[in-house]
């Protein structure tokens, strides 16, 4: 018996949790070398880590090419698909490999048409490496007036605000549902698609088009928010029933104890 107990104690402790090196699994050779280089060559590492790309596990080689499993300069050989840094005018094509829809709208916009004359391109607003997800705050006086007057941009911003806040609210609600264990993939997929199309709208920088399309976006959002609301009302009902059961159980507990008192301390008769 003694040995069995010792064994089970050992087994328990073996099963008990230790520590692992969390980072080891995810490091690419790009990050490993560049982090240690120092100076401007290591700056992108930190910037990237705070970016929306890092958040979604889009790593260096996904944009710059090369072989992230190779731990030598060979990783940056053109043979391994290394692209390196695009020129100013090449940036829209560079980013547009993934952001196809956005690029389409950008190309047709005032910004895109003026690209070869120094027109604004992706990183001017979104930043490089520390890439930010498109949101309303990217449209601000400081940023826009680097090239032109702010008034048109301000109008676009106002037109976008309603849809933008509706998306943000819905996004938060869906995240809260997910936290409670609800499968939200469909809903967040719908929202993602609306947000995607909506973010394309940012890029045509056309005040009239933006104003005209806002209503249709709100309509699309209503479908998703309808589903969210019905789930939330279900959850509310569950809580109500749960409260009733809790009260009943407590009542049963009290009744048991009261019933016990009617028996006092005496031996009950046979």
């Amino acid at each position: 018996m003694k040995r069995v107990m010792v064994q089970s104690a050992v087994l328990l402790c073996l099963l008990v949790v230790g520590v692992v090196d969390v980072d080891a699994a995810e490091k690419s050779s790009c990050l490993q070398c560049h982090a240690d280089l120092g100076g401007p060559l290591s700056k992108p590492v930190g910037l990237w880590q705070a970016s929306v790309h890092a958040e979604n596990r889009v790593s260096c080689h996904d944009c710059h090419g090369g072989d992230a499993s190779e731990l030598s300069m060979e990783a940056m050989s053109p043979v391994r698909g290394f692209i390196g840094v695009p020129k100013y005018g090449g940036v829209p094509d560079f980013c547009g490999r993934c952001h196809i829809g956005v690029k389409e709208d950008y190309d047709a916009s005032a910004h895109g048409l003026a690209l070869n004359n120094g027109g604004a391109q992706c990183v001017l607003c979104h930043g490089d490496h520390a890439i930010k997800q498109a949101d309303l705050d990217l449209i601000n006086e400081q940023s826009c007036s680097r090239c032109h007057e702010y008034d048109r941009a301000a109008k676009i911003r106002t037109a976008l605000a309603e849809v933008d806040s509706a998306i943000a609210l819905l996004d938060l609600e869906i995240k809260q549902l997910f936290r409670t264990g609800i499968a939200t993939r469909d809903m967040s997929g719908e929202l993602f698609s609306v947000r995607n199309d909506f973010h394309r709208l940012f890029h045509n920088v056309d005040v009239e088009a933006v104003t005209a399309q806002s209503a249709s976006f709100l309509e699309r959002l209503e479908k998703t928010s309808g589903r969210v609301d019905s789930i939330k009302s279900d959850l509310g009902q569950r809580k109500l029933i749960g409260a009733v059961v809790v009260v009943l159980l407590i009542a049963a507990g009290i009744l048991f104890l009261l019933l016990r008192r009617t028996y006092g301390e005496n031996k009950s008769p046979r």
């Binding site: 029933i241 009733v244 059961v245 009943l248 159980l249 009542a251 049963a252 009744l255 048991f256 009261l258 019933l259 008192r261 009617t262 028996y263 006092g264 301390e265 005496n266 009950s268 008769p269």
Partner: peptide
């Protein structure tokens, strides 16, 4: 039950019936 000085039987019966009702409701809920 007559040799029970403490715990009046009517009271016990009342509690038992009440408990039965709560128990039935809980059984239903589960």
């Amino acid at each position: 039950m007559n040799d029970h000085p403490v715990g009046a039987p009517p009271r016990r019966k009342f509690l038992a019936v009440l408990l039965g009702l709560v128990g039935a409701a809980l059984t239903g809920f589960f």
